[in-house]
Amino acid sequence: MPRTYLGIDQSYSRCAIVTYTPATARTEIERFDFSPKKSSTGPQRLAHVHWVLREYFQAQRLTGTVGAIAYEGYAYGAKFKREELGELGGVMRLALVQTWPPDLLHVVAPTSVKKYVTGSGRADKDKMLLAVYMRWKFEAPDHDSADAYTLARIAADIDRDEPPELKFQQEVIDTIRNPKPTRGKNAA
């Protein structure tokens, strides 16, 4: 059975997950609306997000074909709703580690997602949509899906023995496989 790869892009109110199967070029997009209007607020919202993602991940795991998962890490420079984003990101990570072994999970910095498809870590959302289409002919319906698709392609390349087609893509893969130690006051 061909291996599949998941790419996950979570924002404050939405989550896009792309399942990509290179052997068949099959791509599926799942989008979840986790806005407070749809998912409540506070702990009830976190419980809802966790339950929905855990159920989705469990269903994917039952297929027995997932080779790697790449999800977007935090944008540390972001100022708005950072506490809520951190809580939502933590709930998603909890659902991931409750479902799969850690060696399948790969966190990817937002700048690395952009660099992987455009060659620059500073591309805006519209440039990302266009770059995903130009590079892979994948017509993403929105920015979150474009990022999730890129993450699924990163996951596939992490799992392969051959290097990706472009040098800057290999740089991103190398950074994910060999992260630099955290620096600063709280570093051990």
Rank of each mutant, 00 (worst) to 15 (best):
I8C: 04
I8Y: 01
I8M: 01
D9Q: 08
D9E: 07
Q10L: 14
Y12R: 01
Y12D: 00
R14Q: 09
R14F: 02
C15W: 00
C15L: 05
C15Y: 00
C15G: 00
I17C: 04
I17H: 01
I17D: 00
I17W: 01
T19A: 11
Y20L: 08
Y20H: 05
P22Y: 03
P22K: 04
A23H: 10
T24W: 02
A25G: 07
R26E: 14
R26S: 13
E28N: 13
E28F: 07
E28M: 03
I29C: 08
I29N: 11
I29F: 09
E30D: 10
E30L: 11
R31E: 13
R31Q: 12
R31N: 12
R31A: 05
F32K: 05
F32N: 09
D33Q: 03
F34R: 04
S35I: 13
P36S: 08
P36L: 01
P36W: 00
P36Y: 00
K37I: 14
K37D: 08
K37Q: 13
K38N: 14
S40C: 06
S40W: 03
T41H: 06
G42K: 06
G42T: 09
G42N: 00
G42C: 08
Q44R: 12
Q44G: 09
R45E: 11
R45H: 07
L46E: 09
A47I: 05
A47V: 08
A47G: 04
A47L: 04
A47N: 05
V49R: 01
V49L: 06
H50G: 03
H50K: 02
W51V: 11
W51L: 08
W51G: 05
W51T: 15
V52F: 03
L53K: 07
E55A: 05
E55C: 11
E55R: 14
Y56T: 12
F57E: 02
Q58G: 01
A59C: 02
Q60G: 06
Q60N: 11
R61D: 09
L62D: 07
L62K: 15
L62F: 04
L62G: 06
T63P: 07
V66A: 00
V66P: 08
V66H: 02
G67M: 10
G67W: 01
A68R: 04
A68F: 08
I69A: 09
I69R: 00
A70V: 12
A70S: 11
A70T: 10
Y71V: 10
E72H: 09
E72L: 10
E72V: 13
Y74V: 15
A75F: 14
A75Y: 13
Y76I: 15
Y76F: 15
Y76A: 15
G77C: 10
A78C: 14
A78W: 11
F80R: 12
K81I: 03
K81E: 03
K81S: 09
K81P: 02
E83L: 14
E84Y: 11
L85W: 06
L85D: 06
E87G: 13
E87Y: 15
L88K: 02
L88Y: 01
L88W: 01
L88G: 12
G89W: 07
G90I: 12
V91A: 11
M92K: 04
M92G: 10
R93F: 03
R93K: 13
L94D: 03
A95P: 10
